[in-house]
């Protein structure tokens, strides 16, 4: 009734609901959940791996399982270790994918918000997960002793 008035800032009937219909974004919810899980795991587990396997081991300061084939293969054959490594490697990648995607947004690449970017980034995390499963299953056969 008063559409022609120059009152761009009146709020009334039907103006409050925004431009689109709202519904919970289940996909966002899931990826955020994976991001949070991965973040916790990376925070709690990664520093010690990097310290021991990336620094102390190569420098020979302490003995580390991955320095010798025997101990490494022995450990890698353990199914619990395989499961642990899957969690350790795959989950953080969902965290990284999420963060890097938003980092691109922050650095001025709005396209990183779109569905194609989501497919690339979260798809990448899924690919790393599948690759990890493949490597864990094919590298050293499962052994129970």
């Amino acid at each position: 009734m008063n559409a022609e008035l120059p009152l761009s800032h009146t709020v009334g009937e039907g103006q409050g609901e925004g431009r689109h219909r709202h519904k919970p974004a289940i996909a966002h919810l899931f990826w955020w959940f994976m991001f949070a899980q991965g973040g916790v795991l990376a925070a709690i587990l990664l520093p010690v791996h990097i310290l021991i396997q990336g620094i102390l081991g190569p420098l020979g300061i302490v003995p580390v399982v991955d320095r010798h084939y025997d101990t490494w293969a022995n450990v890698l054959g353990n199914p619990l270790v395989k499961l642990y490594l899957l969690v350790l490697i795959a989950f953080p990648f969902f965290h990284f994918a999420h963060r890097l995607r938003y980092l691109l947004v922050d650095l001025g690449v709005p396209a990183a918000r779109g569905v194609p970017a989501q497919i690339v980034f979260y798809g990448g995390a899924v690919a790393v997960t599948l690759g990890t499963i493949y490597i864990l299953l094919t590298t050293v056969p499962i052994s129970f002793g």
Partner: peptide, 30 residues
């Protein structure tokens, strides 16, 4: 929803017709 707001509108005068108040004039400040 039936409360329709005019925010930042400055009323300058009451409109009176036959000694009855029939509204106002206002400046849309924006």
């Amino acid at each position: 929803d039936q409360i329709h707001r005019h925010d930042e509108a400055f009323v300058t005068k009451l409109l009176v017709e036959n000694s009855r108040c029939v509204g106002v004039t206002a400046i849309d400040v924006r």
